[in-house]
Amino acid sequence: MTDLIHTIANSLDSGTVIPYLGPDMLSLCSDVQVPATPLALAESMTVKVSVPHKIRKRLTQAAQFIENFKHRKSVVHLMNEAYASSPAPSPLHKVLAGSAAQLWVDTWYDDTFAKALSQTPGEWTQVQGLSQSEHFGDWVAAYGSDGTLLPDMPATAERLLYKPLGSHSPASNYLVSDSDFVEVLTEIDIQTPIPAAVQAFRSGRSFLFLGCRFDDQLTRCFARQIMKRSSDQHWAVLPEEPTRMEARFLQEQNITRIAMPLAQFSEALIAALQVDATA
């Protein structure tokens, strides 16, 4: 396992690995005041708006009900309230942001990793997925490191943060309801919603999945399409025993499972990077 972690550290140093971050990255942060799981987010929304009991714990369905019977603005308002706080980046967030990686994929709604990037020298671009109910015909929007909307989508970028589900900052873009995902999933197989810069940069590179689970079809579909045409070597820190469908996904995508708690992996990776830096 030590050799594997050093291999990943070397890949980060050389910029040949793409960190792919999930909701559980928030478990590494202190004083987290934002929902850190789909269930927690669903509960934060449905405690404020009444929805049928059978969908209260189903995030996309609950959001869709609110969108249908209240308004899309109600969904955005609830999401803004849920993610108004921005947790302080963990040491792993900071190390990844300061690494030689040039593309990061962040699949949750909080602003933590963007904050980590803002604490590193240099410019970076953030690209967020857009809801078709609010931005029909536009799949993504690009923002400068200062939060300014960019007039053109960059074909390439030296440092790019890709938020396929959107994020709280800078413009409250969210993919969260059933209809949001239906629209994207009808096009994602032909790569339409995935920015050209992401498609170009992933070629030949490996992905490192951190804080992710693949125990539902939605997360597997997004990961599969985002990593399409990349390297044939990837890693996922997954301490829990994989479900049958997760195990099949890992095998299909040539993802090596690292059966280690994320906090323990974080410590080991940071130590390996420090060793490499002094070697």
Rank of each mutant, 00 (worst) to 15 (best):
A171E: 02
H6K: 13
S44L: 02
P52Y: 14
A197S: 06
Y174W: 04
T37K: 12
P195T: 05
L78C: 06
N68K: 11
P170N: 13
G211Y: 10
A100W: 02
S86W: 01
D152S: 14
C221S: 15
P170Q: 12
M1L: 13
F136Y: 08
N80V: 01
D111A: 10
G129R: 06
R72Y: 05
T120C: 14
H77D: 00
L165T: 13
V127L: 12
T7S: 15
A236S: 12
F181D: 08
L210R: 07
Q128E: 14
V184T: 04
G15Q: 09
L21T: 09
I188L: 11
Y162K: 06
R202W: 05
L130F: 06
V34R: 03
S203P: 00
T243G: 15
R213M: 00
A277M: 13
D146G: 15
L4W: 05
Q199A: 00
S169H: 14
A114S: 12
Y174R: 01
V105Y: 05
A223P: 01
V47P: 04
T186W: 09
H71D: 15
Q199P: 00
I66S: 03
M245H: 11
A42S: 11
P89A: 03
P164G: 13
E240T: 09
C212G: 01
A88F: 04
R220H: 05
R229E: 03
A97D: 05
Q233I: 12
M25W: 10
A42K: 02
D276N: 15
T148K: 11
W235D: 11
P87R: 03
A196H: 00
A247K: 13
Y174M: 04
H53C: 07
M227L: 10
Q225A: 03
A200R: 02
I55L: 14
S44G: 06
P52C: 14
K163W: 10
L210F: 12
F265E: 12
T219R: 05
K70T: 06
F249Y: 08
A200W: 00
T107G: 12
R205N: 10
L21V: 07
I258D: 07
H6G: 02
F222Y: 15
D276K: 15
Y143P: 01
D180A: 02
L41W: 03
C29K: 14
I66P: 02
P52M: 14
A197T: 00
M245I: 10
I258F: 11
R213Q: 03
H234Y: 12
S179R: 14
S85M: 06
D13I: 06
Q61I: 03
F69N: 12
H71W: 04
L250H: 07
S86Y: 01
